[in-house]
Design a protein around this nucleic acid. Structure first.
Length: 582
RNA sequence: GGAGUGGUAGUUCAGUUGGUUAGAACGCUGGCCUGUCAAGCCAGAGGUCGCGGGUUCAAGUCCCGUCCGCUCCGCCA
């Protein structure tokens, strides 16, 4: 194809097709850059072929043309900046296949047209090489994925798209049933129950590259429909599963980027991640751990924000930056407080340790010299350090400090795009308490098995039960998560009831599943990886929109098709649906 | 639901303290040009300043509302 011609092709008669990228007209001779998805090649049209030249004179950017001619060397006019720069096609025949309107933005890399315009004319945006490349990569990776897992004895199996709405988890997209007016299917948030049923059905190892749907608000790394690499295995320990996934990740990173992933991947408990980095998906491209100063400070300071934190049984968390000299007063007054405020923190206190070991900054006056020395020793920091303090309820203090850590790391140039920090986060709590609903909710999902040594705490202290759940984190992005599942119907029923589901709820929502568990269920577990997020990482994209061909806006609309949209009354009548008055 | 940010020519942007005819680059149209490849040179066309209201002698600029894009919080088992 057009981008692949080289010096070795000289002398060939070729026919090429493509889009006019650019033309350069020099009176007698005319050059056309003809683009397809592989790149572009230069066509030369001369006046001594008057028909060719006359047609060439009329073409405009983005017209689709076909050219037949001879591949020739450019001689002394080689352009080494272009892959096909050694050769050009001396055109004997030229045909216009399709004319084009002037596009609303230029089709070339580095043109940052507005996102809304790009989405409206998505088919034009996709012609741009840098975007086009992402989809070739996408195809390569799905191909590689199928090979890897089928080579490991997985069956690629399909699950329904029209399925059953279940409580728990994300909001479902609903699909009304025409045959059963007033009843609805739901689009799957993930094929969770079906893949477990495959295990009960004896399929042993299941894989699917499947679309999932969640009706929740979007983010740069969250679209309402997304692609998941879904896996489930019977008779497997989580260590075996991790090993298999590590082999997969290593192969993908090796083949796509030529990067050797250090195996085994580091493992860290949820509790450790929260304590040390303030979040459950720490970016370990740099270390810079947080420090919990709550106990050291208790009763030993009058600093108002700290005292307030003690009053609400809060936490005083510190980000020690060993060399904080590059941060300015403006960063301390504006940047850090703004970032922390996004996570609800009311402020960021700070202290600098001077060359002589003396402290300056907002907290300096309120701490005794003895306490300062203890803190510096505990945080292992000395002269030149900058300490950022957030005092608030624990969840806020952690989230704010985690954010500050990333902002500081970024400013210090520690987030290299060619560094890859893989991490398994393990031992998540089984449940977290939902203050709004006044009940326990599953942190992963309700089919996750508690750790076997925590089973007896289900009745006595659900909040302390740890789950056999794990997330795979890469550079601070949650690439996927999974768990060893419950394979015992009584444990499953107990978990459902802990989540506040009545017997009747369990019967109507999950009856088939609890029944199935009773017919000989193998121990099993699995994981789901976000394929789009993985591509985003591998392609170096800033947004999921750059690796999804036809993505939605942050308000979940498609600007190209203008969906969602109203439907005819007739359609609604057939479905037995009446719209509520707004 | 909330916070931030942006919306000016086809595109990307500039537009001072509210003040005369809203500019630049790229693109587009026409012309010249036989070695360009981010081609070059000459000429030209192109504007509902997102939309609606308000303040003012005067609004792209100030105020209120609203729509849309993006980022984040909530939400996302």
């Amino acid at each position: 194809m057009n981008g692949n011609f080289r010096g070795s092709d000289v002398g060939q008669e070729v026919t090429v097709f493509g889009w006019v990228q650019a033309y350069r007209h020099h009176g007698g001779v005319m050059f056309i850059d003809l683009r397809d998805r592989t790149g572009f090649v230069q066509l030369r049209c001369e006046t001594d072929r008057p028909i060719v030249h006359a047609i060439a004179m009329t073409v405009r950017p983005e017209w689709v043309i076909a050219a037949r001619g001879t591949m020739i060397s450019r001689g002394s006019n080689i352009n080494s900046k272009i892959p096909t720069g050694e050769v050009e096609i001396e055109v004997h025949q030229l045909e216009i296949l399709s004319e084009a309107l002037t596009p609303p933005f230029e089709i070339k890399d580095g043109v940052n047209a507005n996102e809304d315009l790009r989405l409206q004319y998505r088919y034009l945006d996709l012609r741009r090489p840098e975007l086009n490349r992402n989809f070739a990569l996408r195809s390569q990776i799905t191909q590689m994925t199928r090979q890897y897992f089928t080579a490991h004895d997985f069956l690629e199996l399909e699950t329904p798209i029209l399925t059953k709405s279940t409580p728990e988890g994300a909001r479902d997209y609903l699909v009304p049933s025409r045959v059963h007016p007033g009843q609805f299917y739901a689009l799957p948030q993930s094929p969770q129950q079906f893949k477990q049923l495959f295990m009960m059905a004896g399929m042993d190892r299941y894989m699917q590259i499947c679309r999932c749907f969640r009706d929740e608000d979007l983010r740069a790394d969250r679209q309402p429909e997304f692609t998941q690499l879904d896996l489930e295995m019977s008779f497997v320990s989580r260590e075996q599963l991790w090993e298999l996934l590590e082999g997969y990740a290593a192969q993908v990173w090796q083949q796509v980027l030529g990067v050797q992933v250090q195996l085994p991947i580091q493992r860290m408990s949820y509790q450790h991640a929260m304590d040390k980095y303030g979040c459950d998906k720490p970016d370990l491209r740099f270390d810079m751990p947080l420090f919990d100063a709550t106990e050291l400070l208790r009763g030993r300071t009058e600093f108002r924000p700290f005292v307030s934190a003690f009053e609400i049984r809060g936490m005083i968390k510190v980000l020690p930056i060993p060399d904080g000299s590059t941060f300015t007063r403006k960063d301390l007054d504006t940047l850090f407080p703004q970032e922390a405020a996004q996570h609800g923190a009311k402020g960021v206190a700070w202290a600098r340790i001077g060359e002589d070991g003396s402290w300056s900054g907002t907290v300096a006056k309120s701490l005794s010299d003895e306490l300062k020395a203890e803190l510096a020793a505990a945080m292992k920091v000395g002269p030149g350090a900058l300490l950022l303090w957030v005092a608030d309820k624990p969840s806020t203090a952690n989230a704010a400090c985690a954010r500050l850590r990333l902002v500081a790391g970024d400013r210090l140039g520690l987030l290299g795009k060619t560094n890859w920090a893989f991490l398994w986060v393990t031992d998540f709590p089984m449940f977290e308490y939902d203050d709004e609903e006044k009940r326990w909710v599953a942190m992963h999902h309700p089919f996750t098995s508690p750790r076997l040594d925590h089973m007896d705490k289900l009745d006595t202290d659900p909040g302390s039960v740890l789950a056999q759940a794990y997330d795979l984190v890469v550079n601070g992005i949650e690439l996927g998560g999974g768990s060893i599942r419950i394979h015992n119907s009584e444990v499953q029923a107990k978990v459902f009831s802990l989540l506040g589901l009545s017997d009747e709820d369990i019967r109507s929502k999950f009856g088939f599943f609890v029944d199935a568990l009773k017919y000989g269920t193998p121990p099993h577990g699995g994981i789901a990886l976000g394929v789009d997020r993985m591509l985003m990482l591998l392609a170096g994209a800033e947004s999921l929109r750059d690796v999804i061909a036809f993505p939605k806006t942050s308000r979940a609309t498609c600007l190209m098709t203008e969906s969602p949209s109203a439907v005819d009354d007739k359609q609604l009548r057939e479905l037995g649906i009446a719209l509520a008055k707004p």
